[in-house]
């Protein structure tokens, strides 16, 4: 349930933007890597709970998962890395270097149009 702290952080960031924009936020897109281990259902529930009674109440939250990538040490191919099938998709080698996991980002917020 580390999603709770993530939800509170998203809420804070959206609220700051909403004050600048001056209209209600409708939806937001966040992106995350594989090692952030964000569960979509729990994330949405945590956000909904945190947003209740605030300007963000009723917002939709879209969660974009960025795949993990690795570079093969043998043939240098960069491929989508599956922990359970870690072989290079080009040469089959198991010797690869995982690339840094994608950070947790607030990508975009959609606001109501100003009247």
């Amino acid at each position: 349930m580390h999603e709770t702290m993530v939800a509170e952080s998203i809420l804070r960031a959206i609220t700051e933007q909403a004050e600048k924009v001056g209209t209600r936020p409708i939806s937001a897109v966040i992106s995350c890597g594989q090692f952030n281990t964000l569960n979509d259902e729990i994330m949405r529930f945590a956000f909904e709970t945190a947003a209740a009674g605030t300007v963000c109440e009723g917002m939709r939250l879209k969660i974009r998962h960025i795949p993990l990538r690795a570079a093969c040490r043998k043939c240098n191919t960069v491929f989508e890395f599956d922990v359970y099938k870690p072989n290079c998709t080009q040469c089959g080698s198991q010797e690869s270097q995982i690339q840094p996991d994608a950070p947790l980002l607030l990508e975009e917020i959609e606001f109501e149009e100003p009247q």
């Binding site: 702290m5 952080s9 804070r12 933007q17 607030l106 959609e110």
Partner: peptide, 14 residues
């Protein structure tokens, strides 16, 4: 109206 951010969510923790 869309606002693009690309902002780190856990920036306060960081």
């Amino acid at each position: 109206m869309k606002v693009s951010l690309g902002q780190k969510i856990l920036s306060r923790n960081e």
